[in-house]
Amino acid sequence: MTHPLEQLAPYVDGSLTRPERLEVERHLASCAQCRSEVAVASEARAALRSMPEVEVPTDLAVPALEAMGTGEAHHPGPPRWVRTIPFVAAAAVVVLLVFITLPRLGGGTASDSAADGALPTAPDTRDLRLEIISTDFDADSLQAEAQTSAARYADPTSDPQEGAALSSPAGATKTEGAARSSEALRCLRTAFEGFPGDPVRLVEASFEGTPAYLAFVLEGPGADQPADQMTVWVAARDDCSIVSLTSVRL
């Protein structure tokens, strides 16, 4: 007699179709061994399913999140401190950090604030121009652009604003003033809850066909440490949704 071994497990848990079930039952009617196995298997299954829920530890994600924090992931995001301290403080810290490392960034208002020792309370107050370029980025070209910008903006001897226009990707480049910059920043903040603000470069372009705002932000591993990566935050211009996020090490 051939025993339907592969059908007995689904017979016990009731996952057979009706014709399959009838076929197994025809066999069971004439096979004491399979009847016995079905009986004990049913009891074992009942015992397994009677095990109560377990208390789950709350730190299951910790090693993974720590690894993300060290940049182990393929596309590391902003450091944890950006997300764990209040937004205004984070923005202020980034602003301060940027002004320490970049002697000439933006217009006189921000420089004056830094010189006075006052922490700006909002990132939008700086006169950051919105670059409008016709490039349609993808993941690779965005990484390359992040790398180029990182090299340029992290070098305190260069003139970031001048360099930006010169080395932008092919296509017409023009810049817009504070109003358009504010709109872009608002959109990025809507898309990304953890957007730290205060980019060193703000771009209107597209990403894989989606019209987008791109914010290039220098970020450091901690509040008192210099920037060590450039993160590019990309939000859709039409609905301010998340499009992409990528980082490169300085």
Partner: peptide, 23 residues
């Protein structure tokens, strides 16, 4: 199927002897 049978054996479940052994 084999796992259930093995578990039943360890749990001391005898075919037709009694109801399921409970926790």
């Amino acid at each position: 199927h084999r796992g259930r049978i093995a578990l039943a054996k360890v749990l001391g479940i005898e075919p037709g002897a009694r109801g399921p052994r409970r926790d």
